[in-house]
Amino acid sequence: MSGKVKIMERKGKDLYERLYLVEIFKGMAVTFGHFISNFLDNSKLYVRHYPEQKPEITARWRGRHRLTTHEDGTMKCVACFMCQTNCPAKCIMIEAGERVDGRTEKMPVRFDIDLLECIYCGYCVEACPMDAIRMDTGIFAVTGSDRQSFVMGLDALLATPGAFSEEEYKKGGA
C-alpha cells in the first residue's frame, strides 16, 4: 500500500493545546460521569422510554387510516373516489361496485391504501363527503416484513376502531 501520505499541521496556540490528550481526557470524564450516574439511576433521563412508554396522541393526530361505519355496521364509504382524486401521493386505489347492503347504490369492492407511498397528509379525510375515512386510529407506527403487508385492504380498514370518542374527534375540527 503506497497511498499518498499527507502530513497534517498541528493546530493550537501552545504546547498544552497541541498536545490534545488533556482535553480528550476532560471530555471523557464528562461522558463517563453521565454514563455512570444514569446507569445507577435512570429516572432522571430526559427521553421517553419508548416503546414501554407510549406517547400521548391528540385526536387531531394523523395516524393510520380507517373506514368508518354507520350504527348498523354498514360502511359509510360510497366509492365516490374523492379521496383517491385528492390524494397527492396517488396511493389510494378504489374499485366501485353495486351496493349490496341495502343503502343507496354504490360501494367499494376494493379499497387499498399503500401506506409505503402515503405521506399522511390527511387530504383524503378532508375530501371525503361522507366522513367515511379517518386517520384517528392512533396507530403511528406501522410495521411489516414485506411490501404487500403495507397495503391496507377494505377489510383491514373497516376492522380498526377509532382511538377517540366522537366528541374528542369533533373537537379536533372535523
Binding site: A79, C80, M82, T104, E105, K106, P129, M130
Partner: peptide, 9 residues
C-alpha cells in the same frame, strides 16, 4: 344531490 354516487358527476 347524489353526486358522490352519480356517474354524471
Amino acid at each position: 344531490i347524489d353526486c358522490p354516487i352519480c356517474d354524471q358527476a
